[in-house]
Design a binder for these strands. Structure first.
Length: 485
RNA sequence: GGCGCCAUCGUCUAGCGGCUAGGACGCCGGCCUCUCAAGCCGGUAACACGGGUUCGAUUCCCGUUGGCGCUACCA
């Protein structure tokens, strides 16, 4: 049995979105699980649309997800180059071979002629495949046309019969070759087309398993016939159902597809994104839903992959992200939250040990209230900014109510007189205050909460008070008195 | 139009001839409680349709419908 070699072959004509990264993940899992190699090949033959920016973004996103590859454009390998645009010389010998065996032929039909025959064909009986007009030419005729410089393409001559393959996820799939066009494998400008380049690249890179999106199912028989004409057994194919956007539309660059990098910027952690993608179209025996990359590696089994296109559910991703955030220890969570606070100017570019430890206390107090890392800005702003931003509704619902003023005045006194500012001490003092005033604790707490945080929701009030400290707390109570009725 | 793939709660799914059709997200209600989260408990909600096969179909076969993909000198 040959050593497993798989590849992820994106074209740098856009950002990596959930669908593409899921394909990458599946390939990675398969390779790692089998102890094989994972190759990153960049299909950048579409010079018009490919850009180095997209290439860099794709590499960055894959790394962020935690996927690594053994061979690729930036790290090299024994089967390079890994940029398809640099492999141009490897296609010609194969074309020659096919031309010699008669499995390919020159076609002089112009795009305009073809277009005309195609539309006429479609008008009469729906479909149209190339009519093999140029197959009629004798050798001499063809050579003279070539000699006089008539523009031509090379077409692959699809054999008769049926082509079938055993798909790793879909099972047996069969096509009648009569449905297949004599596809162009070399363009007028001499460059290879996708279906041909893929075969040659996969062949030369010794790829054993092709795991890709279901949008390639119809390409598979075309590629298989080329593999065979080239004298090789095709690799094993596995087609993953497409990922649909929440509205059931296919994820695409213009319709709802969010780049992986965008998830990073929105405060999702890679653990959650990976876990969610794995669950999209795959399930584990039993009810386990949480998987680290390593656990996926141990348990992933292509046989349990769903055949049905899955639609992406942002709610579940949020839930999953919150879960992974909860699992992180405080130091780690703090670390990840820092860039988001810095971006908002709530934190200096460099942190001293004291600032860091203060931030850790804030993060610890916030506990599991973060759904995405960016929530930190809203939730911790009042701890980090000098001034409180008062929420209008909170003020009108709580501070502007009768009695609020008296409570704040009373609390100011109680807090001034507390022997220390530990949560337990504060709780005792405030409970006593409430009791004496014949008020429920809640009635007392809410005005204080709004005074301190500007909002009606926050972590526990005693811990918040304690972390804010006496000086700040009292100052904020004073400031809030200006907002009471 | 042709060819191909697919079809269980709104969504992700378990199921591989006999189940009160299970779980998860969301949603609703409750508990907890100083608020908000979290947590716990409970509820809501599905086998697309029609034929077969079978003692018995969500499950197997065929058809219909629907969704999606491909149908380029794009990848």
């Amino acid at each position: 049995m040959n050593r497993v070699r798989v590849r992820f072959a994106p074209s740098p004509t856009g950002f990596l979105h959930i669908g593409g990264s899921r394909t990458a993940l599946l390939n990675w899992l398969f390779a790692r699980n089998k102890g094989g190699s994972f190759v990153l090949r960049i299909e950048d033959t579409d010079r018009e649309r490919s850009t180095p920016e997209y290439l860099n973004a794709i590499i960055e996103d894959l790394r962020w997800l935690g996927l690594d590859w053994d061979e690729g454009p930036e790290c090299g390998g024994d089967f390079g180059p890994y940029l398809q645009s640099e492999r141009s010389e490897s296609y010609a010998p194969h074309v020659e071979k096919l031309l010699k065996t008669g499995d390919a032929y020159h076609c002089f039909c112009s795009p305009e002629e073809l277009e005309e025959r195609r539309s006429r064909g479609q008008a009469t009986d729906g479909g149209w495949i190339y009519d093999r007009k140029c197959l009629e030419f004798g050798d001499d005729e063809r050579d003279s046309l070539l000699a006089e410089g008539r523009p031509s393409v090379v077409r692959f001559r699809v054999p008769t019969g049926k082509t079938s393959f055993d798909d790793m996820v879909l099972g047996k799939i069969e096509f009648d070759n009569a449905e297949l066009d004599d596809l162009v494998i070399v363009r007028q400008d001499g460059t290879p087309t996708y279906n041909f380049a893929v075969v040659v690249d996969d062949l030369e890179m010794a790829i054993t398993h092709v795991i890709r999106g279901a949008d390639h199912i119809s390409n598979t028989p075309r590629q298989i016939v080329i593999w065979k004409a080239l004298g090789h057994e095709p690799p094993t194919f596995g087609h993953q159902p497409l990922v649909l956007a929440p509205d059931k539309q296919v994820m695409s660059k213009r319709r709802g597809a969010i780049a992986v990098g965008e998830y990073r910027r929105r405060g999702y952690v890679p653990e959650a994104v990976v876990n969610y993608m794995a669950l999209l179209g795959w399930s584990y025996e039993g009810d386990q839903e949480f998987f680290s990359l390593d656990e996926l590696l141990q348990n992933f089994d292509m046989g349990r992959a769903s055949k049905k296109p899955a639609s992406f559910d942002p709610n579940k991703l949020d839930w999953m992200n919150a879960h992974w955030l909860k699992k992180l220890d405080v130091a780690d969570r703090t670390e990840r939250v820092i860039p988001f606070l810095q971006a908002e100017g709530l934190l200096a570019e460099t942190l001293g040990p004291e600032e860091r430890s203060h931030l850790e206390q804030v993060v610890e107090l916030l506990d599991d209230r973060l759904k995405v890392l960016t929530d930190i800005v809203e939730l911790a702003g009042f701890f980090l900014a000098p001034d409180v931003v008062y929420d209008k509704i909170a003020v009108s619902k709580v501070l502007a109510k009768p009695g609020a003023e008296e409570i704040l005045v009373g609390l100011h006194k109680v807090l001034s007189e507390c022997p220390d500012f530990q949560p337990e001490t504060l709780e005792g003092a405030m409970r006593k205050f409430a009791e004496d005033a014949e008020l429920s604790l809640g009635k007392v707490v809410q005005p204080l909460r709004v005074a301190l945080t500007g909002r009606t929701a926050s972590p526990g009030i005693f811990e918040t008070l304690s972390l804010l400290g006496r000086k700040v707390s009292l100052a904020r109570i004073d400031a809030a008195r200006g907002l009471t009725a």
